[in-house]
Design a protein around this nucleic acid. Sequence first.
DNA 1: TACGGTTGTCGAAGCGCTTCGACGCAAAGG
DNA 2: CCTTTGCGTCGAAGCGCTTCGACAACCGTA
Lengths: 349, 349
Amino acid sequence: MVTLAEVAQHAGVSASTVSYVLSGKRSISMNTRQRVEESIRELGYHPNAGARALASSRSNIIALMIPLRTDMYVPVMMEIAIAVATTARAHGYDVLLLTGEEGPDAVRRVAGSGLADGMILMDVELEDERLPLLRGGAAPDGARPGVPADQPAVLIGLPADTSGLTCVDLDFRATGALCVEHLAKLGHRDVAVIGEAPAVYERHTGFAERTLDGLRSGARESGVRLLHRPCEGGYDAMALTLARILDERPDTTGFVVQNESAVEPLLALLRQQGRAVPEDVSVVAVCPEQVAVQASVRLTSVAIPAQEMGRYAVEHLVAKLDGRDGDEVVLLAPELTVRASSGPAPSRA
Amino acid sequence: MVTLAEVAQHAGVSASTVSYVLSGKRSISMNTRQRVEESIRELGYHPNAGARALASSRSNIIALMIPLRTDMYVPVMMEIAIAVATTARAHGYDVLLLTGEEGPDAVRRVAGSGLADGMILMDVELEDERLPLLRGGAAPDGARPGVPADQPAVLIGLPADTSGLTCVDLDFRATGALCVEHLAKLGHRDVAVIGEAPAVYERHTGFAERTLDGLRSGARESGVRLLHRPCEGGYDAMALTLARILDERPDTTGFVVQNESAVEPLLALLRQQGRAVPEDVSVVAVCPEQVAVQASVRLTSVAIPAQEMGRYAVEHLVAKLDGRDGDEVVLLAPELTVRASSGPAPSRA
DNA sequence: TACGGTTGTCGAAGCGCTTCGACGCAAAGG
DNA sequence: CCTTTGCGTCGAAGCGCTTCGACAACCGTA
């Protein structure tokens, strides 16, 4: 393994000079810089990460905590993870992958050991156990063992109390409103919402509830009757849910779906029942773009901007690490793309 | 930040004693051990990762390289990633997430900097650029700059030449054979294979070709006519592909699908054309269990054992790092689960 | 000519940990 | 009784890097 000292010797300068060439923290003459860079290349030198972390107390690593359970939105998680990794690299950071498994202990461990300089948490729950460990200035002065003050972090998702936290998320409230308004404008009066699996609501992952909130207030404003039903996803569960909905509200002509794995089954079922999309019923989905485009009917949808969220999260975190940025909640504005699954409501019988 | 020295002082012992308590590399009296452990708990001590890595030249980190493109099998990748992370933690390792983006440079960087002790590569291509950097003993003696000899690694997937490498993968050849045999036994004589997107074949990701191999030799042995068509996935592409297949081979009664995003469209299209599954046509899928179970018809399938692959990969890598294990290729035996999508071929008209 | 101000380089002191050799002490052996 | 053995502990030497203060050489200015 090549060391700084060897590079220095090879280039005929001191170790500190090589270090300064690498970090750019002091000015170096053109001549020396080139000699050093040449030696680095020639010897194939890579700075030792451990030594660097020890000396500078910066690991240049960002920890990403992903949820262990994958009952929803796997492609979204993946897309976020990839965006995080890519963006992080662009800023000189690597990404450490943590699963939710360890819970708050993971936060303590990573923060305490200086393994990562900061962390990004996905799938935050409304009252997440990990939040007290992350909250900034608001902490009481008493030193709590194992809890380093103020571990820089960014959340993807929105907890109940965002004070002292930095968060990035899609504005799901606005998303809900947008969906129902779109249907209302098209003349739909009875709209059914096919939601996430009941477990998702029970877990109090805020986004599902916030969407519902938006849907409800949008419905109220535009005089639409709304029926919300959670759904496990999959064909059988969807069949059951759809039957219940149509039984309860036979005049339903609009659907809002927020559950990837219910989308295709719903379309199949509607087709089977002779309800044409979009002539008889309209469907609006909240899902990644790819799902909307690849579905058997190209879906009018609000996209979940996974990449953007990942990118934002990293950029805010890096800014925080550089002391350039405070706590802040960024809600991305939803965009509804009209495709082939929504149209004017059929005139009433 | 609490240091070893502080713990030592608090417990009234020397720093090295604390270190030995932590590592268990020398015997420690019951009494001392307990006092030290108590101090550690009380102070909330976490060893500094950088210092540890520097002193021991072991980072306790495993790098996982995932493909950047997500044109296929996203849930499988995710499942593998999570299995890797979980298993790694169980062995005291953390996981660094790398995207394919950097290519071979990532290998050089990580190996050279001692960031990770070993790496796991997913989505290996037949002639992968990264392989020469990983290959073990076979390397010529001349020191190649930037290429540390013998970076411990495990591949998930199978390259063309596996010499000096450790690999884990599903036995896709056997998988293909298994699928076609199943259909043959049921009396199907004309089988169509709906494959991955053309791009996947062009990229020479071995698994697609190996499956095809297995399918072909299975077909030969059991006297089945086989027609293979790549397919982009999604409804429209599937419609086109299906039309071509039925045009070319109108008597096709068996389908093997190796493309998650083509499964549901295929079922929808068959339904639409009045071809009943499994009465008129049988469908066998190569896909994760979850997809098979959630589809609109419960699919006879060969599962892709993502979790198992992740777990194996980590366990082999850890064994290698402990010097307990050599190079080896592990091919997991496929298992075909019969569900509701396959049945006896209809008697010929 | 002498002066403060840059600019470029160096030496040395750590960062927090692991690990090696040394040492004191009790138990076991002659 | 003294030696040997092994156990439990300690001190010190690094691991490879960053960073601070020092300093020599040079500039322009007084």
